[in-house]
């Protein structure tokens, strides 16, 4: 019985992973296809990478997207960390319900709604105070910060909830004022979460099509917008090449980061085990 159930789990797992990864693998394989028709194999070639690198539009879109992503990640990490701190460590305060609602709603809010509402806000603001005078990099960044900070806040909340409040209590017991407790204890605890949050906000921004298309103005084309305008008419081998580069870059970064984190955790587990064995030995 036990064994039968685990074969079931095993096959579902294999199917699920195949489902998740085969499309990506095929995407990569076809980027090395000579043929212009994506699904028809015409021999190995890196021709489409050449086409890609020669395109000025792609470079411009990439640079714009990277700029937005970096700014977004930085601000979203700051705001999201503050929000996460407030929600986990400050107990009850006035407006907490509204606050936590505004933090978790962007996670599930359909992008079309967020995009539309932000655009209408920018237009109204422009009518009222003349800002923002034109839509583009600033408006996209603001829009991205708004939904990315929610993700950062969730990461920070999880990290804070997982650590013992007693560390902070101990610090204040030893005479640290609340502000010092935050800088000495809380922020170092949060550092890994903030790094993860920054990276997530960065990729979320690099990934966003819908909201950016709403709040962008003429001339400001982000990379996803460029990709979208090309693929909506069908398969394009140069997009396969672009996809391969993006997926491999991010994939390798994530795998390395994950591996480093794993190694660190394993090291810590080992140290703890050693320490436990030593104490036991001393007792007996």
């Amino acid at each position: 019985m036990q064994r039968k159930r685990s074969t079931f789990l095993f096959s579902v797992m294999c199917f699920g992973m195949a489902f998740l990864y085969i499309p990506i693998l095929l995407l990569i394989v076809y980027s090395f296809n000579y043929s212009k028709l994506v699904p028809v194999w015409g021999g190995f070639s890196v021709r489409w990478y050449g086409v890609l690198f020669e395109s000025e539009a792609v470079w411009a879109a990439l640079m714009l997207s990277l700029k937005i992503a970096v700014m977004n990640a930085t601000f979203a990490t700051m705001f999201g960390t503050l929000a996460g701190l407030a929600l986990v460590r400050f107990g009850r305060f006035r407006g907490r319900l509204l606050f936590s609602g505004m933090i978790s709603a962007p996670l599930v809010m359909p992008e079309v709604i967020t995009g539309l509402s932000l655009l209408l806000l920018f237009i109204t603001l422009n009518q009222l105070i003349g800002w923002p005078s034109e839509r583009g990099i600033t408006t996209i960044t603001i829009a991205h910060i708004t939904f990315s900070m929610a993700y950062v806040a969730v990461i920070i909340q999880a990290r804070l909830a997982g650590t013992d409040q007693s560390l902070e209590d101990a610090a204040s017991d030893l005479g640290a004022k609340p502000f010092r407790v935050m800088t000495d204890i809380t922020l170092p605890i949060l550092a890994p979460g903030m790094v993860a949050g920054w990276l997530l906000a960065f990729t979320l921004s690099l990934d966003d099509l819908v909201i950016a298309s709403f709040v962008s103005g003429p001339g400001a084309n982000t990379l996803p917008m460029l990709i979208y305008s090309r693929v909506r008419l069908g398969l394009r081998p140069d997009i396969n090449a672009l996809a391969t580069i993006m997926i491999l870059t991010i994939g390798i970064c994530v795998v390395i980061a994950g591996w480093l984190m794993l190694r660190k955790q394993r090291q810590r587990d080992q140290d703890m085990q050693l320490a436990a064995i030593e104490t036991l030995d001393r007792e007996f």
């Binding site: 995407l27 398969l235 997009i239 993006m246 991010i250 994939g251 994530v254």
Partner: peptide
């Protein structure tokens, strides 16, 4: 978790192929 980090748009595009 890995797919979270790779472009959503491109993953949808992969299915077009």
């Amino acid at each position: 978790i890995l797919p979270f980090w790779t472009s959503f748009l491109l993953r949808v595009y992969a299915w077009m192929g």
